[in-house]
Design a protein around this nucleic acid. Structure first.
Lengths: 233, 233
DNA sequence: CACATTAATATGTGCATGCATATTATCTTA
DNA sequence: TAAGATAATATGCATGCACATATTAATGTG
């Protein structure tokens, strides 16, 4: 038995967790309310509240005012993905990072993004194709649209020194965004860029970010063969 | 300007967020400490603490005792993925769900999983191949190993009524796990099962879960063509 | 009986205070 | 001067209390 340090909120959380795991409280069942638990553990209600709040955040219990706290019927499996700046991801693996801008121009917003960007933009967007390298081997291929209304300084930057990925994180913080993951087959051009063979399945990610109502950037990243996105749950 | 409801912790969080977004506090910069902010907002230190704790959780600020709170240099982009039970995912899209167990037998733990499962198991594991359908069209193909030490009741279940996916969530809660996402090419057998053409890129997920030291299950899910995993950030 | 009103109740949050703990800065001392 | 002891300080956490708010149950009313 681990030292439970009851009357610390983490300790109480562990006790509650064990009861849920051991089915002392069945899924769907109402558990005692804060005041009772506080008395049982001999601590303040605030402390129990903290523990329960944490369990609710991770989806294990459902809390409603007046209705009480009940064990979740099917705890949704939540996974927190950390999506780092590519340079940092590569360097954290002990590899050297480099990137190369393959294409850079102004163009009208592609129709595909009209819906996603929602607002009609007053001017062209900056389009970039970038290849990211890990130890001089292709790591990921990036296609990006930048809304110059949201990041006007980007117009004068070549993004040869600092990648658009990193520059935007530092200079155009977003408030929210959409993120999706999927698989694509490598076409001819992707193959040449990513050292893949034609048709190979590649892991891809697409992201659109906004600062309030203003769309900032759309990016599509396609990773070299063998890439896995990992996390712990 | 939105109503800021200062002296509520969420209101204070919004104000702090705006200051970070507007670069009033530069990345890397030390921000005033809790007591000062509490005085500025005319609230208790606890309330400021709650707001700062929340910002720290989302990775926007870094907090260290004595050292103070500083704005993160490159806020890691954290995304929370909710991985639902497949039946619920399908039904939430308004489709009908069905699954079919294609194969079910006991076998020795495959060498591939010896490392992952870490401990040597005393007996065989239960192996299952399941196909999940959405509106009678293939949705995902599942290969699963279940440790019968962790879930002995599984030995007598056919998993025709309730899928192993769902049964395990209800009957063998895990404490932690590893999760990864990647892309695979459809091979001959996958094609037949998932209505794909040979070589098509498919989105896949692999997951191993433990209850404490005890491995529970390994599962590999391969989704039908076109699948996207989405989230908001 | 249907519907609106009111009361009861469990969680949500704020406050003032005190102490714990990690980390940095400062002061000793060999 | 370098290494170790000590003080200072910002966050972390627990407590007791009060009030806010959402939701359910009970009650009243046409």
């Amino acid at each position: 038995m681990t030292l439970t340090d009851t009357n610390s909120w983490t300790g109480i959380r562990e006790v509650l967790l064990r009861r849920i795991h051991n089915r002392i409280w069945q899924p769907g069942e109402l558990i005692p309310h804060e005041a009772d638990l506080a008395e049982e553990f001999g601590c303040a209600r605030t402390t129990v509240n903290r523990a329960l709040r944490d369990l609710a955040e991770s989806g294990l219990v459902i809390r409603k005012r007046r209705a009480g706290t009940r064990v979740a019927i099917n705890p949704p499996q939540r996974a927190t993905l950390t999506i780092p700046i590519i340079r940092e991801e590569v360097e954290s693996l002990g590899r050297s990072y480099r990137h190369s801008v393959l294409e850079r121009n102004l163009r009208a917003l592609p129709p595909m993004l009209h819906g996603a960007f929602q607002v009609s933009l007053s001017e062209d967007v900056l389009f970039l194709k970038t290849l990211h390298f890990s130890d001089e081997r292709p790591y990921a291929f990036e296609e990006r649209h930048i809304n110059l209304d949201a990041a006007p300084d980007a117009r004068d930057l070549a993004f040869n020194e600092i990648s658009a990925n990193e520059w935007l994180v530092h200079n155009a913080p977003y408030t929210h965004g959409d993120l999706s993951f999927f698989a694509v087959n490598a076409d001819e051009t992707l193959c040449r860029k990513l050292d893949a063979t034609t048709g190979m399945a590649l892991f891809a990610m697409e992201r659109i970010t906004w600062a309030g109502e203003m769309p900032i950037t759309h990016v599509r990243l396609i990773f070299a063969p063998g890439y896995r996105m990992r996390t712990e749950i």
